[in-house]
């Protein structure tokens, strides 16, 4: 692993040891949800009834999880404490870099499931719908989010991609 990916990898897991006030993150996450909603309206048609489903997306090496209820008019996307998860129907867990590669359209979700790098529980139909909906988004959601933060966002994504490729999910 070269120095830059190693640094990014450490950053990705830094959250596991640092306490982080979630209120700092919430406006950013709301902004991301609004952006995705505005630019990728086609996602909601594929979700069908699961626009009303609550998903917990759990980067296991972070000190918090994410909650998503993908309602087209009022998407709810926020950071949550694992000890106080809101009511939800489905949960998707994996390392942050694994989840990043997934929304970066860089890795196959089924392959991550086969290798046990991705764990799903709860409503499987909701998870499959969300996976298929996000996979139909042209380009990369990760790149779209990075773009929101300008040059710094693009640099951060590049470093994280390098880190993800330097420590890929379990294979073989």
């Amino acid at each position: 692993m070269t120095a830059a990916p190693a640094r990014a990898s450490r950053m990705a897991t830094l959250g596991a040891v640092l306490p982080m006030p979630l209120f700092v993150l919430q406006p950013v996450l709301r902004r991301i949800a609004r952006r995705i909603t505005r630019e990728h309206a086609e996602v909601f048609a594929r979700l069908g009834p699961h626009t009303q489903t609550g998903f917990v997306i759990d980067p296991v090496d972070f000190p918090f999880a994410l909650f998503l209820r993908p309602e087209p008019q009022a998407p709810d996307f926020r950071a949550v404490r694992r000890a106080h998860l809101p009511a939800h129907e489905a949960r998707i867990s994996g390392s942050f870099l694994t989840l990043l590669r997934l929304i970066d359209a860089d890795v196959d979700g089924d392959a991550l499931f086969f290798s046990r790098d991705l764990v799903i529980s709860g409503n499987t139909e909701a998870v499959v719908s969300l996976r298929n909906a996000l996979d139909d988004v042209e380009g990369s959601i990760a790149a779209d989010v990075a773009e929101m933060f300008g040059p710094l966002g693009r640099i951060a994504l590049r470093k994280l991609r390098q880190a993800a490729h330097a420590s890929p999910p379990t294979e073989g």
Binding site: R116, V119, S121, T124, E125, S129
Partner: peptide, 16 residues
């Protein structure tokens, strides 16, 4: 195997 009928259960030893 319709997804609505599929359930994954993981125990505390990580058996699936």
């Amino acid at each position: 195997s319709p997804a609505a009928e599929v359930h994954y259960v993981r125990d505390d030893q990580e058996n699936l």
